[in-house]
């Protein structure tokens, strides 16, 4: 569906968390995508994707209809939908899969959408920002544009759950031994370091029900990362970012757990490698100080 002749073009769906809490991710995504020749078209009238535990668990029908409504907006624009959030990605991928493979459900969903004068035919694709970078724009293109390679930077990659699972629906990479994000990191000139708990969930979903559990999972994850001694962590999801960055800082403050590992959204590192100026304020918004790593890159 994406128009290949005029470069890549997507309907952009930043999602609630990026829009309201981590707008710096949005800034990095917009700037880096523009540099790589991809156009992002804003989507009017969108709502929460919506979050599954809050809607699917309560009423599957509601979850399907709201997600389909958002998808219908992109379909109306005539573009594939692009999101920087693993959560929104998981919701859209799954609902899109259901609509494309289950005729009965599609009819039912559209019966609901009719009430708000919308229809979703299931004609578009759902893409994650890193998926678009890997599959549409490609490593070669990125490599060509790099001005400041991330030399001597060791990075711990955290994929996040919904970027890969359930693999039967997502079909982006192997759910147990994925490589594409590591490849994207290495294209920037950095080194992706292995660590034992690489495929473990960040635990962020439990913040709203049992923060103690969320912190314990985070501790396990960060301890494992620390052993590999990376310069920073890279994530592809705002909730992972909140958990790994903000709550790492919280652990540090409250529990004296000094991991001190800066966290970046992939597009931020991409901006640095492409020598895109994100502004003075940008990295100040990170809770774990990222200055040293940023300096190390900018200096090179």
């Amino acid at each position: 569906m994406a128009e290949r002749e005029t470069g890549h073009k997507y309907a952009f769906f930043p999602g609630c968390l990026v829009t309201t809490r981590l707008p710096y991710i949005e800034a990095a995504v917009r700037k880096s995508m523009r540099r790589l020749g991809a156009e992002l078209v804003d989507m009017p009238e969108t709502t929460c994707c919506p979050e599954p535990t809050l809607t699917k668990a309560l009423n599957q029908k509601t979850w399907l209809a709201i997600a389909a409504r958002n998808l219908s907006i992109a379909e109306e624009i005539g573009l594939d939908i692009l999101t920087p959030c693993n959560g929104c990605y998981g919701t859209f991928k799954t609902v899109n899969y259901i609509i494309k493979t289950n005729e009965k459900e599609r009819v039912k969903i559209n019966d609901t959408l009719k009430k708000v004068n919308r229809e979703y035919k299931g004609k578009i694709q759902v893409k994650h920002v890193v998926e678009a970078l890997y599959k549409d724009i490609g490593k070669e293109r990125i490599k060509k544009e790099i001005q400041k390679p991330l030399k001597n930077i060791k990075i711990a990659v955290h994929y996040g759950c919904h970027l890969l699972r359930p693999s039967e629906i997502i079909q982006l990479d192997d759910p147990e031994q994925p490589t594409f994000l590591d490849e994207l990191v290495e294209v920037l000139g950095a080194k992706s370091v292995d660590y034992e708990r690489k495929m473990m969930c960040c635990g962020g979903e439990d913040l709203k029900i049992h923060p103690q559990t969320a912190y314990s999972i985070l501790k396990e994850k960060l301890s494992s990362i620390k052993e590999a001694d990376p310069d920073c962590i890279v994530v592809t999801c705002p909730l992972c970012m909140i958990q790994l960055d903000e709550n790492q800082a919280l652990l540090q403050r409250r529990h004296r757990q000094n991991f001190n590992i800066p966290v970046f959204y992939y597009s931020e590192l991409l901006c640095l490698a492409l020598n895109i100026n994100l502004g003075d304020q940008h990295f100040k918004l990170h809770r774990i100080k990222a200055d040293e790593v940023v300096k190390k890159i900018v200096k090179s």
Partner: peptide, 13 residues
């Protein structure tokens, strides 16, 4: 559920 390898010792958890 899973096995992970310590990259240094090559021990398995």
């Amino acid at each position: 559920a899973e096995i992970s390898e310590n990259p240094l010792t090559k021990n398995l958890t």
